[in-house]
Nucleic acid binder design. Structure first.
Lengths: 152, 152
DNA sequence: TATCATGTAATATCATAAGTTACATGATAG
DNA sequence: CTATCATGTAACTTATGATATTACATGATA
């Protein structure tokens, strides 16, 4: 099954935007993401409607974050993307008349809902600031590992 | 995103098989499921490899359950299907060199893993027998609802 | 030995995400 | 003013994977 990687892609975009001064053009982001500027605009349009970014036309225009990284959770971004389907698993029939199939679907749906609740709770608990800080941790971990390795 | 509905379909198939005496042909199952017999065989082949069903060729042949409904959990069936991808959400790049993207992916993956653990735990807790019994509950609920409705 | 059923490879169909093209709208520099 | 730059967006193309179909092989039974 094909996977939707918009969330992963958008996080990447936003973290890079936060590192740059001033607005960033769709062309520049597209090069960073190795994709087409129109794809960037489509994604960013959703974020703009949810107030996470703003856009400016003309010379010196582009995209800009409207809040600090610590004020954007992964859940905010997921919602801004239109809450794309979480699961690759679904029901064969939407409203089956067969009672057995209804029962099977109900059970699957309950399990999926419980899992989705956990997922959204996790996304709500992480901000973009956390992700940025994690990079520092990773670098530190790496250095520690290297130190350990070279002294062993 | 397109959804994989094999789990839902297979539960439906197995519950019907348990209701019928003797082996059931792929053709008959295909008609029940409004699909093609080859699709049924493909799915059932996976279940057979995991010992959940057995097949017999020739006259009077077909598919048969190898255990009682109470000895088959939804997790057993999920595994027999080859543990298909649970999530429609994925990473944009498998092994990104960008540290920011690594951090974003790591966080998403952790959230997905937590959710997957919950999902599998739920699937492990439900047997086909439970699903069959749930049908009774639904019928009772419906009757209760109708009683309530008609006496209100 | 004719018929029935599974086994399976090869191919076709269909839905959807992602990518591309083309052109409209609006802002700014000169 | 107008040339340029940037977003806005509709229409179209491409790529991918799930599902469906066809065709034929294998094995069991009446």
């Amino acid at each position: 099954m094909r996977q939707n990687s918009q969330l992963s892609g958008v996080l990447h975009i936003l973290l890079h935007m936060a590192e740059l001064d001033g607005p960033v053009t769709s062309d520049r982001l597209a090069k960073m993401m190795k994709t087409n500027p129109v794809v960037i605009r489509r994604i960013m349009a959703g974020l703009r409607e949810n107030g996470l970014v703003q856009s400016e036309k003309g010379h010196g225009g582009g995209w800009r974050l409207t809040r600090g990284l610590s004020e954007m959770t992964l859940l905010d971004i997921y919602k801004a993307l239109g809450e794309p389907a979480v699961f690759a698993i679904g029901n064969r029939t939407e409203s089956p008349t067969c009672l057995l199939e209804q029962s099977a679907n109900a059970s699957i749906n309950q399990a999926l809902k419980d899992a989705e609740d956990v997922l959204l709770a996790r996304l709500r608990a992480v901000t973009l600031e956390d992700l940025k800080n994690d990079v520092g941790d990773q670098v530190r971990d790496l250095r520690h590992w290297n130190d350990h390795d070279s002294t062993a």
